[in-house]
Design a protein around this nucleic acid. Sequence first.
DNA 1: ACTCATTTTTGACTACAGTCAGATTATGGG
DNA 2: CCCATAATCTGACTGTAGTCAAAAATGAGT
Lengths: 205, 205
Amino acid sequence: MASVAAKKSAAGETPGRRERNKLIKRERIVRAARDLFHKQGFAETTTQQVAAAADIGTGTLFLYARSKEDLLVMVFKDEMLENVQAIFATLPADASPTDQLMHVFNRMADYHARDLDLSRVLLKELVIPSSTERIGEISELMRAILGGIASIVDGRVAGQPALTAQSAFALYYFALLGWLGSRFERNSSMRLLREQLDQLLGAGA
Amino acid sequence: MASVAAKKSAAGETPGRRERNKLIKRERIVRAARDLFHKQGFAETTTQQVAAAADIGTGTLFLYARSKEDLLVMVFKDEMLENVQAIFATLPADASPTDQLMHVFNRMADYHARDLDLSRVLLKELVIPSSTERIGEISELMRAILGGIASIVDGRVAGQPALTAQSAFALYYFALLGWLGSRFERNSSMRLLREQLDQLLGAGA
DNA sequence: ACTCATTTTTGACTACAGTCAGATTATGGG
DNA sequence: CCCATAATCTGACTGTAGTCAAAAATGAGT
């Protein structure tokens, strides 16, 4: 009957109202969580509030995220990826590799500066993810960054671009953690980072 | 009575039964927590158990540590510092700077390998400490490591030793986090790290 | 020896993350 | 259209981290 037409669009394929509902629901959850985390902060937002705002049961939330922290990564991963792409898309044209890298890292730091508390929790979870599903997503984000860095240094400094990119990012990460972990001021972290990058890139193999 | 003899050892000085009891109590807490965390794991150990084992009230524990995670840092900070000193005290005599650094980093990784779950939680807290008191202790640990690294590279590679040490440590940290965060195998992390160190040290200024 | 202010301890209590047995809903076959 | 099966959802419930008002301990002054 009518059902026949609506049913399978392609044989044993994707669709099914099930899959679709899951995606829609996931989107509702992410949006609700993002709003609440931004408005109230992470600690001040309860999982019950998120569930209520997403119009689902308390338990359902944990079918989509393993933990409250995992939810935070779910929420910000896409936003961060877009941010990264936007950053690499607007590089200061004729600047030295070091300057270009510092531009990228400064813009990334700006992103975290928008909400320090949120970023602190987020970074903890990015560093040691508590769900295996998230590991892939984080690697994706990292690949995007490493790729961008590699293309900045490629052909302009000695050594393998991929290796140099990894090192440059590691230096940034350490600076970021020093800052967010309150061991240094943002400014002194970034100043030190620049010196380190200068040494690394000035190096060659 | 007997109390009279036992009382003030030196005039208006340091002591006071108060201060002393606090230190003893703190020691009991640390010992109890260390034993339980090692025997049962972090998640499986409740703060009640720690309090009971240290023979104090539930609430008292949180006068000494801000949170369960903070307690973990309190517990392992000293052990880590001793470990670090032991490592730097036994460097392979005539090895290249890179080899000496890798020796240090491998031994540090061994330490974390003893209990991966514990180290994961510990690292999260070292990265972004949740108590200001701990920040100083962590910086102390870091200074010890950076000092050791600086003395390895000092005079043997170009560039300012302190700067190079920071970079080398940052690279190690990133490798460590990649490993503990399950993004890489220990072996591949360490292999990459060696390449990065080679590039960094081979560099010069 | 006896106050009394100050520091330290305490455990009953609260709030919340996360679980799980059972209810609900989709799907495909007859 | 209806049923059987499997997938998905649900909210009452549990365990525990951390709080806080009241209690105990301490030591200085008299």
